[in-house]
């Protein structure tokens, strides 16, 4: 049996898992809940400056890249384990293809700000 090339995606999965485990709780709480609710008060202009800061855009891209590959990897195995074993190959292409497209979109958003 030959060695698998799985490490290519697994390292992205693991990196994504670690990053999102660490940052996503506060990220989701602050940006998707507290900010819209106004618990964290933010001036729109300043917020645009914050979100548009190169460091935040870099962070957004890294989060998207690693997060999407992390998610894609898990989704791939979950779908297969739920009984779609026969479709393993298309599922794999779909999941990582999606993650790649998503990452490219994120890159474009980050660069074209």
């Amino acid at each position: 049996m030959a060695r698998s090339n799985e490490p290519a995606v697994w390292s992205l999965f693991a990196g994504g898992g670690a990053l999102t485990a660490l940052i996503l709780p506060v990220h989701a709480l602050a940006l998707t809940i507290l900010l819209p609710l106004g618990v964290i008060e933010a001036d729109s202009e300043k917020l645009v400056a914050f979100l548009g800061h190169p460091l935040f855009r870099l962070y957004m891209f890294v989060l998207a890249l690693l997060g999407l590959f992390h998610g894609a990897h898990r989704l791939r195995f979950t779908l297969i384990d739920l009984g779609l074993h026969a479709l393993a190959t298309p599922i794999t292409w779909l999941c990582y293809g999606g993650a790649t497209i998503g990452s490219l979109v994120a890159l474009w958003v980050a660069v074209s700000f």
Partner: peptide
């Protein structure tokens, strides 16, 4: 040994 352990049926089969 890695040929088997690091194969598709090896550790990479584990979820």
């Amino acid at each position: 040994r890695m040929e088997e352990v690091a194969s598709h049926d090896g550790v990479w089969g584990c979820t």
